[in-house]
Simulated scan of single mutants.
Amino acid sequence: MPAPATEVMEQYGLGDDVLLSPALHARMHAFLLDYRFKILMVCRRNRRGLFNYMRELGLQRGARVALVDVGWHGTTQEAFETAVRPMTHLNVQGYYFCLVDSADTTRRRQSHAMQGLFSTKSVADSVVRRLYDSRVLVELFFTAPHNSIIGLDASPAGVRWLEDARFDSKGELAAAAASVAEGMQAYARDQVMARLANSAITDSKALPLERAWPLVDLLQRTRKPVSGTVAALKNFDSWGATRNKDALLQDALA
């Protein structure tokens, strides 16, 4: 959603030079209350886009849907099912790289089907904590090779994805993510071929966890400062980015 003009924000005492704090919550409340109709317009557009996108996919009532996410508490799944429920009933199963034993996770498990590759059901709690404490680095491996999707727009030609290109205008982050994804796929292919060639491997159920374990080993090593291209990556999380300050990856990993 485009921000109002600077002079409009200044009327609320929320100009570009203002740093938000709890003391300004009353101003923010007044602004959001007056701006609610613009916000609802975007919500309706996204809702219409989601409905049409499900139609394009051929999803019908009771369809089985797998929602795959890195983790950590099932927030995305809850948001998706909450948005879809008034439209139709889908049988959603969430698959996560790692699920943390938190109050939010426990609450969501009661009403949402959720499984984690790494969880206290499959590994020690210390392993889950190690992954969660290093979640910035872990999430970097799951960065999509495109800008963040911030909306859906339905048109006669089909549903169009709306991307947030504010923080990656040169495509540097998308290129880095594509390179990481290519390396991960190459590693997975090599591992599959190596295991298929080893007739001694009989427990196929253990393979997914074993394939992911090198990441756990990586996090166990003494952390070295990142350098080069990786250190220069900035604003890699557009949801938490601001134009007032560049967020460098090397600072997040410090």
Rank of each mutant, 00 (worst) to 15 (best):
T75G: 05
F80Y: 09
A79P: 07
V128G: 03
A157Q: 06
A177V: 05
Q77P: 10
F51W: 14
Y96G: 03
F167T: 00
A83H: 05
L215N: 02
Y96I: 02
R108N: 00
R27N: 09
D153I: 05
S179F: 11
D246G: 08
S227I: 07
D246C: 02
R129S: 14
D251T: 14
A231V: 02
A177M: 09
M41Q: 11
S21M: 11
F97I: 01
T88F: 06
Y187V: 11
F236A: 05
F51L: 02
S148Y: 13
I149S: 02
R44C: 10
T105E: 07
K205V: 12
C43H: 15
L19E: 08
A23N: 03
D101K: 12
D69Q: 12
A154N: 09
K170W: 12
R36I: 14
M28P: 09
G151I: 05
R55E: 09
W239V: 13
L67N: 00
A5M: 06
W161M: 11
Q185I: 10
E56K: 02
D168L: 02
V42P: 07
S204W: 15
G94K: 01
K205G: 15
A144K: 14
F51H: 09
C98I: 03
F118W: 03
Y53I: 09
V18Y: 04
S111T: 04
G116K: 02
D251A: 06
G228H: 02
T6M: 08
E56G: 01
D190T: 11
Q115K: 07
K245G: 13
Q115D: 15
C98K: 06
R44K: 09
N52H: 15
A231W: 02
R85H: 12
E7Y: 09
K245H: 15
R61E: 15
Y53N: 01
K234Q: 14
S111N: 10
V42A: 07
R166K: 04
Q60T: 13
H29R: 13
M54R: 12
G62R: 01
A26T: 11
F118I: 04
L20V: 03
S102Q: 04
L137W: 06
R48Q: 14
L248P: 00
Q191I: 14
R48C: 12
D34Q: 15
G171Y: 03
A157Y: 11
E56C: 06
E139Y: 04
S199E: 12
L248Q: 05
N147I: 06
P208T: 11
D203G: 10
A3I: 03
L24K: 12
Y12L: 07
G13T: 13
F31H: 12
A175E: 09
W213G: 05
T6I: 13
V180Q: 00
H89V: 10
V18A: 12
D168N: 03
N244R: 15
T76L: 10
L40I: 13
L207N: 11
A124G: 06
R27I: 08
N46E: 08
L218S: 10
A66W: 13
V127F: 03
V216Q: 00
D133Q: 11
L248D: 03
A144V: 14
H73C: 07
P225G: 01
K234N: 11
V42F: 13
A23I: 11
R107C: 07
A252C: 14
A174P: 09
G58K: 03
D164W: 04
V92L: 02
D104T: 15
A188L: 06
L117M: 07
M9W: 05
R223I: 13
A26W: 14
E182R: 14
L32T: 08
L20N: 06
